[in-house]
Amino acid sequence: MGELAIFSKKQIGNAILFVLLLSFVIVWLLPVGGAILTALRSMDDLIANGFWSKPEVLTFDNFRESWSTGMVGRYLFNSFIVTIPALIGTLFLSALSGFVLAHYRFKGNIFIYLTFVGGMLIPYQILMIPVFQLSNFLNIYNTYWGLVMIHMVFQMGFCTFFLRNFMRTIPVELAEAARIDGCSEFRIFWQIYLPLSKPALAAVGTLEFTWIFNDYLWALVLIRNDSLKPVTAGLASLRGQFISSWTILVAGSLLASIPTLLVFIFLQRYFIEGLTMGSGK
């Protein structure tokens, strides 16, 4: 077969592939595109004319309504108040335990490591009742702290697993040299391992941000007051408030997704790295 023939065959193949993929992606994103169009219309219009009709009016009222009356603004604020300390806490604690498990050889090392890995795979249901009771006991039920604690601690499983494996690739000689210069063990962690682990911290941090931010189950179990609910549980309340006002509900869902969408747009690389590195090892 001549070179030209292969070339054009490949080109035609690629063109067909492109069209196929494009159509697939358009259908794939229809739920999101449809949601945006829905949120800009009025419910009466939709009920009367169906989705595929020409909109009578386009309006931002639904966004306004869900943001203020529906409290989506407040819920988003709550989500950040919970997610940020939980994220910082879990990264710090997991970096520390990851460092210990990667760097020191001692009896029980592998056992502790496997405990963390096993812990990240268990069903949440097996923790629900005792964590609910523990939070009650510590007077942090129905507070931000209750949520911060469970996220911070539960996510240590995955983060420790991830950071420990990354830190194993840092040459031990660096620490040995620092030790000869009289560096304390904590400074070896803080000034050598932590800075060198920045790429891993970025990857796992991005991933954990979306996981903690998107949690629904713990918000359901540990928060009772609407005013404290993060946006996931908040959306469930919104559902009760605006029963079938889908235009407002959909607008609220879109607003609720902005933070993770921004993370996705700007930190996509870390997000993907986190997913592949975390599971590939």
Binding site: S94, S97, Y104, I129, P130, L134, M149, V153, M156
Partner: peptide, 26 residues
């Protein structure tokens, strides 16, 4: 090794309290 265990104390206590302990209690 003492340092290692010292560093692990915080994370392990929390993990016992919120993950291991609750699993067994369930």
């Amino acid at each position: 090794n003492k340092t290692a265990w010292f560093f692990l104390t915080g994370p392990l206590v929390l993990y016992l309290g919120w993950v291991i302990g609750p699993s067994l209690y369930t």
